[in-house]
Amino acid sequence: MNRELDSIDRAILNRYQGGFPICERPYQAAAEIIGISESELIRRLERMLEQKQLSRFGPMYHAERLGGGLSLCAMRIPEEQYDQVTEQVNAFPEVAHNYARDHAFNMWFVLATETPERIGSVLEEIERRTGFRVYNMPKLQEFFIGLKFEV
């Protein structure tokens, strides 16, 4: 059972999702703002990583600016074939997230490829292997950026 987050953990999470000091001793700088020691901050981050409350402590890249392709894709899969198609889809290394959702369009995944041109060929390959249509829904415009969870 995970240890509950205390008020210091919450302060760390709320303060450092948006950015982190870039200097020689960033943990010391960050810890000072929270009012704890460098070693305590590191210990708390290690614990939250271990308990999987954090997925990582690092960069979130802008895939397109790195030269890669990124798209959200959806499929309509009959319930009795869902598990099998999930396995086929997840076998592609370009599939980064795959969520089931409660709708006729019940499979939603993100494709991340090394080049934008690769998106189309991976989609075709998924269609060929599964026998179902893949609906490609790339981002056309972004109205808000940031994903921040107040805890």
Partner: peptide, 8 residues
């Protein structure tokens, strides 16, 4: 890099 920090 869009953000550098904690990814929850």
């Amino acid at each position: 890099i869009k953000r550098l920090g904690i990814v929850v």
